[in-house]
């Protein structure tokens, strides 16, 4: 057996280590670059789900950039991200919402318990609008600019360390 050949396993292992080390130490970028990025919102018009709060349609996304939060009262990570949404609201960012497969009483109870950052909540009983948005689960949050164009998609719950980045992204979208 040729001598250099004996070092092939170690070299291969080195490459492997490099790959996983880069994966481990690269700052996690949880903003997914979906195919809907930089496309206008799909057409939708959703009925209200809780009394006193309007429903949500495509035409509501004008004037300034907004966040569109896809959530459900039965979803546990949605509870986890509630404080972050409230923080974003306090930072002056309007947040709209779509409630997935939910009921009015459940959503009301959810908002009472976890706080209410939403201006409007649309009722999406069969996930139809969720699917049209290219969202596959809850929670997901879209950044929509003043012209109704989707600029970013955040999959999963928004964590505390993401808030500053999202505020900056909203500013950049103005």
């Amino acid at each position: 057996m040729r001598r250099p050949l004996l070092w092939v396993p170690l070299a291969g292992f080195g490459v492997l280590l490099l790959i996983v080390a880069v994966g481990l130490f690269r700052p996690a970028d949880r903003a997914v670059h979906s195919t809907l990025i930089d496309r206008p919102l799909p057409d939708f018009g959703l009925k209200p789900i809780v009394p006193g709060k309007p429903g949500l349609s495509k035409d509501d996304f004008t004037g300034q950039p907004r966040l569109l939060n896809v959530f459900a009262s039965w979803c546990v990570p949605c509870i986890a991200e509630a404080p972050q949404l409230l923080a974003l609201k306090r930072a002056g960012i309007p947040i709209e919402a779509i409630a997935i497969r939910d009921t009015g009483t459940d959503v009301q109870a959810f908002l009472r318990r976890n706080g209410d950052p939403y201006d409007r909540i649309g009722d999406d009983p069969a996930s139809a609008t969720q699917l049209a948005l290219g969202s596959s689960g809850v929670p997901e949050t879209f950044l929509v600019d003043a012209k109704g164009v989707i600029r970013r998609q955040y999959i999963g719950d928004i964590r505390a360390d993401q808030v500053a980045g999202i505020v900056a992204a909203v500013e950049a979208a103005r």
């Binding site: 070092w7 292992f13 280590l17």
Partner: peptide, 16 residues
């Protein structure tokens, strides 16, 4: 990752 590097790297070094 460090354990992996030390043990497997060490074993493959010994192999070479």
């Amino acid at each position: 990752l460090v354990l992996l590097a030390v043990y497997i790297g060490g074993a493959l070094l010994l192999f070479g």
